[in-house]
Computed example of a mutant assay.
Amino acid sequence: MKKSHGPAFTKLMIDLDQCPECRGKAVIGGVFHDLPCGLCNASGWVAAATGEALALDELVTQLSIRLQNAQLHINELKQPRATGPEAIYQQGNRLGAGGINYTGD
């Protein structure tokens, strides 16, 4: 068994699932108006393994981690990558005069 002191160096992602009671909407329809969901602390998310609501500080951390991963994925999709023969022309190889791109044309 490995000894450890203090908190972990990295925060692990907890698998989240939509709240079964409010179906991820964070509110439940009342008679006259919407009420905050009590099962998920009005967040719409619960721990997938246990089905219990996360503490608010843990929930904010987990949602922030997911948002950062989604933003990274979106930024990767926004930058198209050339493939095939086009990739040779798109990337700089610094073989030309003055260190510019040389394509051999």
Rank of each mutant, 00 (worst) to 15 (best):
P80Q: 05
G99T: 08
I88E: 12
L39G: 02
I28N: 07
T61L: 04
A48I: 09
E58T: 15
K78S: 05
Q90L: 04
P7K: 08
L35T: 12
Y102C: 09
E76A: 02
V31A: 13
Q91L: 07
A70C: 09
S43G: 02
L16A: 00
D105V: 14
G24Q: 03
E52Y: 09
P20A: 03
L12K: 14
L95R: 13
V46I: 15
H5E: 12
L67M: 12
L39R: 13
D17H: 00
N75T: 08
F32C: 04
D34I: 03
L54D: 00
L35Y: 01
L12F: 03
G96F: 01
V60L: 04
N101A: 08
Q71D: 13
K78R: 13
A26P: 14
N101W: 05
A49M: 06
L12A: 14
D57E: 12
G99M: 02
I65F: 01
A49Q: 14
H33N: 14
I14V: 12
L39M: 13
C19A: 04
V46P: 00
N101L: 06
D34G: 02
Y89V: 13
G51Q: 00
Q91A: 10
E86A: 14
N93T: 04
A55W: 04
Q62T: 03
C40N: 02
Y102P: 01
L95Y: 09
Q68L: 10
C19K: 01
P80C: 00
A42F: 00
R66M: 08
L77R: 11
E21C: 09
F9W: 07
W45G: 05
Q62I: 02
L72T: 15
L56V: 15
L35D: 05
P85G: 07
Q79P: 00
D105P: 10
C37D: 06
A82W: 05
V27C: 10
T50V: 07
E86N: 08
H33S: 13
Q18H: 07
S64E: 11
N41W: 06
D57H: 06
P36I: 12
L54Y: 01
Y102W: 11
I74A: 07
V27H: 11
K25V: 13
D15N: 14
A53D: 06
P85R: 14
L16E: 01
L59M: 15
M1D: 13
G51L: 01
G6Y: 06
K78W: 03
C37F: 06
G44V: 09
N69I: 12
D17E: 12
R66E: 03
P7T: 14
I65Q: 10
G104I: 07
A42D: 06
G96W: 03
L56F: 08
L54S: 01
E21D: 11
A55F: 06
S43D: 03
D17Y: 04
I100D: 01
L35C: 05
Q68V: 14
Q68T: 15
A47T: 13
